[in-house]
Computed example of a mutant assay.
Amino acid sequence: MTIKTFNLGPLQTNCYVLSGEKEAVVIDPGGNPAEVVEYLKANNLTVTHILNTHLHFDHTAGNRELSEITGAPILCSEKDADLLDTWLGRGGENGLPLLDSYEWQNIEPGKTQFAGFDCTIFHTPGHSTGSLTFYFPEAGAAFVGDLIFYRSIGRTDFPGGDLDVLKRSVTEHIFTLPPATKLLSGHGPETTVSDEQSHNSFFSEF
Protein backbone atom coordinates (compact mmCIF):
# COMPACT_ATOMS: atom_id res chain seq x y z
CA MET A 1 0.00 0.00 0.00
CA THR A 2 1.27 3.45 -0.96
CA ILE A 3 0.00 6.85 0.20
CA LYS A 4 0.91 9.86 -1.93
CA THR A 5 0.12 13.44 -0.85
CA PHE A 6 -0.64 16.40 -3.11
CA ASN A 7 -1.25 20.01 -1.99
CA LEU A 8 -4.07 21.31 -4.15
CA GLY A 9 -6.06 24.50 -4.50
CA PRO A 10 -5.76 28.00 -3.02
CA LEU A 11 -5.80 26.68 0.56
CA GLN A 12 -3.19 23.99 -0.13
CA THR A 13 -5.51 21.19 0.88
CA ASN A 14 -3.92 17.78 1.34
CA CYS A 15 -5.22 15.42 -1.32
CA TYR A 16 -4.27 11.79 -0.80
CA VAL A 17 -3.95 8.89 -3.21
CA LEU A 18 -4.00 5.51 -1.49
CA SER A 19 -3.09 2.69 -3.82
CA GLY A 20 -2.16 -0.92 -4.23
CA GLU A 21 -0.60 -2.45 -7.32
CA LYS A 22 -3.42 -1.61 -9.72
CA GLU A 23 -6.20 0.31 -7.95
CA ALA A 24 -6.40 3.53 -5.98
CA VAL A 25 -8.75 5.82 -4.12
CA VAL A 26 -8.39 9.60 -4.09
CA ILE A 27 -9.34 11.47 -0.92
CA ASP A 28 -10.30 15.16 -0.97
CA PRO A 29 -9.16 16.47 -4.38
CA GLY A 30 -9.31 20.13 -3.38
CA GLY A 31 -8.07 21.76 -6.59
CA ASN A 32 -6.97 21.17 -10.15
CA PRO A 33 -6.29 17.42 -10.23
CA ALA A 34 -3.75 17.50 -13.08
CA GLU A 35 -0.87 16.37 -10.82
CA VAL A 36 -2.99 13.56 -9.46
CA VAL A 37 -3.99 12.38 -12.92
CA GLU A 38 -0.36 12.42 -14.06
CA TYR A 39 0.64 10.33 -11.04
CA LEU A 40 -2.16 7.84 -11.66
CA LYS A 41 -1.18 7.44 -15.31
CA ALA A 42 2.52 7.10 -14.52
CA ASN A 43 1.76 4.30 -12.09
CA ASN A 44 -0.94 2.61 -14.19
CA LEU A 45 -3.51 3.03 -11.42
CA THR A 46 -7.28 2.79 -11.82
CA VAL A 47 -9.27 4.98 -9.45
CA THR A 48 -12.18 3.07 -7.94
CA HIS A 49 -13.61 5.88 -5.79
CA ILE A 50 -13.20 9.55 -4.92
CA LEU A 51 -13.80 10.06 -1.20
CA ASN A 52 -14.71 13.35 0.47
CA THR A 53 -14.19 13.75 4.20
CA HIS A 54 -16.61 16.70 4.03
CA LEU A 55 -18.07 19.02 1.42
CA HIS A 56 -16.25 22.31 1.97
CA PHE A 57 -15.12 23.68 -1.39
CA ASP A 58 -11.41 23.43 -0.57
CA HIS A 59 -11.79 19.65 -0.34
CA THR A 60 -14.01 19.16 -3.39
CA ALA A 61 -12.83 21.60 -6.06
CA GLY A 62 -11.33 18.82 -8.16
CA ASN A 63 -14.22 16.40 -7.74
CA ARG A 64 -15.98 16.93 -11.04
CA GLU A 65 -12.91 16.97 -13.28
CA LEU A 66 -11.30 13.98 -11.60
CA SER A 67 -14.54 12.00 -11.76
CA GLU A 68 -15.00 12.84 -15.44
CA ILE A 69 -11.44 11.79 -16.27
CA THR A 70 -11.38 8.58 -14.23
CA GLY A 71 -15.05 7.57 -14.24
CA ALA A 72 -14.84 7.05 -10.48
CA PRO A 73 -17.89 7.87 -8.33
CA ILE A 74 -17.72 10.56 -5.65
CA LEU A 75 -18.69 9.34 -2.18
CA CYS A 76 -19.55 11.57 0.78
CA SER A 77 -22.10 12.00 3.54
CA GLU A 78 -25.55 13.28 2.64
CA LYS A 79 -25.50 15.11 5.97
CA ASP A 80 -23.28 17.72 4.29
CA ALA A 81 -25.51 18.15 1.23
CA ASP A 82 -26.90 21.49 2.44
CA LEU A 83 -23.40 22.95 2.12
CA LEU A 84 -23.62 22.65 -1.65
CA ASP A 85 -26.10 25.54 -1.69
CA THR A 86 -23.70 27.84 0.20
CA TRP A 87 -20.35 29.48 -0.49
CA LEU A 88 -18.73 26.97 1.87
CA GLY A 89 -19.60 24.20 -0.54
CA ARG A 90 -19.51 26.09 -3.84
CA GLY A 91 -16.88 28.81 -3.38
CA GLY A 92 -17.57 31.99 -5.31
CA GLU A 93 -16.73 34.48 -2.58
CA ASN A 94 -13.58 36.34 -1.50
CA GLY A 95 -12.09 35.98 -4.96
CA LEU A 96 -12.57 32.23 -5.06
CA PRO A 97 -13.96 30.59 -8.22
CA LEU A 98 -17.49 29.22 -8.23
CA LEU A 99 -17.38 25.45 -8.54
CA ASP A 100 -19.40 23.52 -11.07
CA SER A 101 -21.89 21.09 -9.57
CA TYR A 102 -21.03 17.40 -9.54
CA GLU A 103 -22.79 14.10 -9.04
CA TRP A 104 -22.17 12.35 -5.74
CA GLN A 105 -23.34 9.29 -3.82
CA ASN A 106 -24.08 8.98 -0.13
CA ILE A 107 -21.99 6.62 1.96
CA GLU A 108 -22.82 5.51 5.47
CA PRO A 109 -20.46 4.78 8.37
CA GLY A 110 -19.35 1.17 8.74
CA LYS A 111 -16.91 -1.34 7.32
CA THR A 112 -16.23 -1.60 3.60
CA GLN A 113 -13.38 -1.95 1.11
CA PHE A 114 -11.75 0.52 -1.27
CA ALA A 115 -9.17 -0.53 -3.86
CA GLY A 116 -9.07 -3.93 -2.18
CA PHE A 117 -8.22 -2.56 1.27
CA ASP A 118 -10.39 -2.80 4.37
CA CYS A 119 -11.75 0.53 5.52
CA THR A 120 -13.84 1.62 8.50
CA ILE A 121 -15.81 4.82 7.99
CA PHE A 122 -16.60 6.88 11.07
CA HIS A 123 -19.12 9.71 11.24
CA THR A 124 -17.03 12.40 12.95
CA PRO A 125 -19.04 15.65 12.99
CA GLY A 126 -17.92 18.88 14.60
CA HIS A 127 -16.17 20.68 11.76
CA SER A 128 -19.19 20.00 9.58
CA THR A 129 -22.37 18.03 10.17
CA GLY A 130 -21.42 15.24 7.79
CA SER A 131 -17.67 14.98 8.35
CA LEU A 132 -16.30 11.47 7.85
CA THR A 133 -13.06 9.75 8.83
CA PHE A 134 -11.71 6.93 6.65
CA TYR A 135 -9.58 4.49 8.66
CA PHE A 136 -7.44 1.94 6.82
CA PRO A 137 -6.03 -0.51 9.40
CA GLU A 138 -3.60 -2.13 6.94
CA ALA A 139 -1.98 1.26 6.40
CA GLY A 140 -2.23 2.23 10.05
CA ALA A 141 -3.71 5.50 8.84
CA ALA A 142 -6.87 7.54 9.31
CA PHE A 143 -7.86 10.28 6.87
CA VAL A 144 -9.52 12.78 9.19
CA GLY A 145 -10.21 15.81 6.98
CA ASP A 146 -10.42 18.98 9.08
CA LEU A 147 -11.46 17.20 12.28
CA ILE A 148 -8.05 17.30 13.95
CA PHE A 149 -4.67 18.70 12.91
CA TYR A 150 -1.14 18.53 14.28
CA ARG A 151 -1.55 20.06 17.76
CA SER A 152 -4.84 21.70 16.75
CA ILE A 153 -8.42 21.07 15.62
CA GLY A 154 -10.68 22.15 12.79
CA ARG A 155 -12.73 25.34 12.86
CA THR A 156 -16.12 25.07 14.50
CA ASP A 157 -17.49 28.54 13.68
CA PHE A 158 -18.88 27.56 10.28
CA PRO A 159 -22.49 26.38 9.87
CA GLY A 160 -22.65 22.80 11.11
CA GLY A 161 -19.64 23.26 13.37
CA ASP A 162 -19.75 22.52 17.08
CA LEU A 163 -16.75 22.40 19.42
CA ASP A 164 -18.26 19.97 21.92
CA VAL A 165 -19.38 17.64 19.13
CA LEU A 166 -15.94 17.79 17.50
CA LYS A 167 -14.16 16.93 20.73
CA ARG A 168 -16.53 14.02 21.28
CA SER A 169 -15.87 12.76 17.73
CA VAL A 170 -12.14 12.80 18.40
CA THR A 171 -12.30 11.10 21.79
CA GLU A 172 -14.78 8.43 20.71
CA HIS A 173 -13.46 7.58 17.23
CA ILE A 174 -9.89 8.85 16.87
CA PHE A 175 -8.34 8.41 20.29
CA THR A 176 -9.69 4.86 20.45
CA LEU A 177 -7.57 3.85 17.44
CA PRO A 178 -4.15 2.23 17.98
CA PRO A 179 -1.72 4.84 19.37
CA ALA A 180 0.65 4.62 16.40
CA THR A 181 -2.11 5.31 13.88
CA LYS A 182 -1.12 8.11 11.50
CA LEU A 183 -3.63 10.96 11.30
CA LEU A 184 -3.66 12.42 7.79
CA SER A 185 -5.39 15.78 7.97
CA GLY A 186 -6.80 18.13 5.38
CA HIS A 187 -4.05 20.69 6.00
CA GLY A 188 -0.58 20.62 7.46
CA PRO A 189 1.70 17.74 8.48
CA GLU A 190 0.67 14.28 9.55
CA THR A 191 0.59 13.34 13.20
CA THR A 192 -0.35 10.30 15.29
CA VAL A 193 -3.01 9.37 17.79
CA SER A 194 -0.52 9.13 20.64
CA ASP A 195 1.09 12.47 19.80
CA GLU A 196 -2.23 14.29 19.85
CA GLN A 197 -3.31 12.56 23.04
CA SER A 198 -0.12 13.78 24.69
CA HIS A 199 0.32 17.24 23.19
CA ASN A 200 -2.93 18.61 21.75
CA SER A 201 -4.03 21.31 24.19
CA PHE A 202 -7.68 20.92 23.18
CA PHE A 203 -7.59 17.48 24.84
CA SER A 204 -5.62 18.22 27.99
CA GLU A 205 -7.47 15.46 29.84
CA PHE A 206 -5.31 12.98 27.90
Score class of each variant (00 low, 15 high):
120 T>N: 07
120 T>H: 11
121 I>T: 10
121 I>C: 05
122 F>C: 03
122 F>K: 05
122 F>L: 04
122 F>I: 03
123 H>F: 03
124 T>I: 02
124 T>L: 04
124 T>G: 02
124 T>V: 02
124 T>D: 00
125 P>W: 08
125 P>A: 05
126 G>K: 01
126 G>P: 05
126 G>A: 02
127 H>M: 03
128 S>G: 07
128 S>A: 08
129 T>I: 09
129 T>V: 14
129 T>Q: 11
129 T>L: 15
130 G>H: 06
130 G>V: 08
130 G>F: 07
130 G>R: 00
131 S>A: 12
131 S>G: 13
132 L>M: 14
132 L>Y: 08
132 L>A: 07
132 L>I: 06
132 L>C: 10
133 T>V: 12
133 T>D: 06
134 F>A: 01
135 Y>D: 07
135 Y>S: 09
136 F>S: 10
137 P>H: 12
137 P>F: 10
138 E>N: 15
138 E>H: 12
138 E>M: 11
138 E>G: 14
138 E>V: 14
139 A>D: 14
139 A>H: 15
139 A>P: 06
140 G>N: 05
140 G>L: 02
140 G>R: 00
141 A>D: 05
141 A>G: 13
142 A>Y: 06
142 A>H: 01
142 A>C: 09
142 A>L: 05
143 F>Y: 15
144 V>D: 05
146 D>A: 00
146 D>N: 01
146 D>E: 01
146 D>C: 06
147 L>D: 02
147 L>V: 11
148 I>P: 00
148 I>A: 01
149 F>A: 07
149 F>K: 06
151 R>N: 15
152 S>M: 02
152 S>G: 13
152 S>Y: 10
153 I>V: 09
153 I>Y: 00
154 G>E: 01
155 R>D: 14
155 R>S: 12
155 R>W: 05
155 R>Y: 14
155 R>T: 10
156 T>M: 09
156 T>H: 09
157 D>T: 15
157 D>A: 11
157 D>L: 10
157 D>R: 15
158 F>Q: 13
158 F>T: 08
158 F>C: 07
158 F>V: 11
